[in-house]
């Protein structure tokens, strides 16, 4: 809970327990007592290590890094889907948080598009009346008016993606947590959603945006946070961060050097 709508991340660590040969049943747990081959072995993998930053209200922060650097984990922790192993995350209390970890959030294939709009908007905590007001706009934005009474299982993946994105963007959330969204939809839909995102940004709302695309990050984000193997390299303006990201990829610089050249701006310090 922060009083001014900031998101605070302090000494955040996340461990995944990798269980080889995990005992999924009581039977295999029982067999494991007698037979070594069926025993579970555990290793701990530190996905995020001591992350610290503050996202002031209204800032859009990009997150960049190589595959497996912990970007999605960070997003899931911010969303509250995963619980930190240690450290603290503070998110404004009553904020509606839109999460877009994968497209087509929680769609039930057998239900129609319209039923799914209601279901997925209510997942974020919206009431029926609030959804009623926006439902027309959502359908129109998704360009699905003629398919809205068809079960979602008959939708193409692009249609599902459009519907999922429209629900999130039209419902007017306070904070958006987004993982690579512009991969879906055709060019015209992409442009439309970019424009909508810009509107959202101009309305002074917080966005956390995970992407590999330097161009998209440059367009939307005030600052970008660079992660490297679970550790935070630093935060800076998109151009500087991208430079370091490329340098790290080609091993032209080490983690420590990158860290010193990317100082965290004062506004984003905890």
């Amino acid at each position: 809970m922060t009083d001014n709508g900031d998101i605070l991340v302090e000494h955040l660590c996340k461990d995944y327990i990798l269980q080889y040969n995990r005992a999924m049943t009581l039977k295999s747990r029982f067999v494991g007592i007698f037979n070594r081959r069926y025993r579970t072995t555990k290793t701990i993998f530190r996905a995020l290590d001591d992350i610290n930053f503050r996202i002031p209200n209204g800032i859009s922060l990009g997150v960049m890094g190589h595959n497996g650097s912990g970007k999605s984990t960070l997003l899931k922790l911010l969303a509250g889907i995963l619980i930190p192993t240690s450290g603290k995350i503070k998110v404004p209390d009553d904020a509606y948080i839109g999460t877009m970890i994968q497209l087509g959030v929680g769609f039930s294939p057998e239900l129609t598009g319209l039923e799914n709009v209601y279901l997925s908007a209510s997942l974020y905590g919206y009431q029926r009346k609030e959804i009623d007001k926006k439902v027309e706009e959502i359908i129109e934005f998704a360009e699905l008016s003629s398919f809205i009474d068809v079960p979602v299982k008959n939708y193409s993946s692009g249609m599902q993606a459009r519907l999922g994105f429209s629900v999130m963007i039209i419902m007017d959330m306070d904070i958006l947590l987004i993982d690579e969204v512009f991969a879906a939809g055709d060019l015209s839909f992409q442009e439309k959603s970019k424009a909508k995102m810009m509107e959202f940004k101009e309305a002074n709302k917080t966005i956390v945006f995970v992407s590999h695309s330097a161009k998209a990050l440059d367009e939307f984000c005030d600052y970008v946070c660079l992660l490297y193997k679970g550790k935070m390299v630093g935060i800076g303006v998109p151009k500087d961060v991208n430079e370091q990201y490329v340098a790290l990829t080609h091993k032209r610089t080490t983690f420590e050097e990158a860290q010193t050249s990317l100082a965290v701006p004062e506004a984003l310090l905890v």
């Binding site: 209510s122 009431q127 029926r128």
Partner: peptide
């Protein structure tokens, strides 16, 4: 109370299905 609409939607989903 915030999620009462969600509960209703989940129940009605199960019933419709």
């Amino acid at each position: 109370p915030k999620y009462k609409c969600l509960i209703r939607n989940l129940v009605s989903r199960d019933l419709t299905l």
